[in-house]
Amino acid sequence: MKAAVVVFPGSNRDRDMMRAIEIVTGHAPVAVWHGDTDLPPVDLVTLPGGFTYGDYLRAGAIAARAPIMTAVAERAAAGVPVLGVCNGFQILCEAGLLPGILMRNADLHFICKPVRLKVETADSVFTNAFAAGDVIDCPVAHGEGNYRCGEATLRELVGEDRIAFRYVDDLNGSVDRIAGILNDRRNVLGMMPHPENLVEPIHGGLSGRGVFESLVDAALEVTA
């Protein structure tokens, strides 16, 4: 499985994402600079965590208008899986590839700790290695993870089974304890927790592997 990791000024989990992808898939991903306008032919595009442009204006707002994002949107429209983690989730929302917005945590604190995460759907290329209802531990590290959207959007997300992950306990004020959502085609996932930081024994657990293993399985199915 070939993957690309988009690197923006202020990305800081790009190396973690590249390492996790290589460990689980066996193939080193390609790093793509935000100022580029083309993506290589890949089976997965990822937007890693960080603080692109210092969170100026709104988290992810400037990065969402970077030159590479036109190509990311084109790949998403073509059905290529796009995974945005943490700041990557914020960028996907600001780019309009996912609905809603991530706002300041309700208690204003930067939250950096492992949390209990419930897998809400196994029906996606990112979650098919899990079973719906699985509860995993996963680290979070964010100040702006408070997911907000309009009531109509929330009804769609729930009704179309597009909430991929929920926090077991309220963490940051997110509506409906949302931690990760899918787009309507189910090929774009944004999530605040960091599965790429839970793939090696030294991380204290391996349950983040499921996201990447799901993508490998999905890529194999496409090939077969």
């Binding site: 204006l57 707002a61 208008r65 600001e94 809603g100 917005i101 706002m103 907000r148 959207c149 309009g150």
Partner: peptide
């Protein structure tokens, strides 16, 4: 509409 405001909120 393009950048300065996020009209969701």
């Amino acid at each position: 509409e393009a950048l300065l405001a996020n009209t969701v909120v």
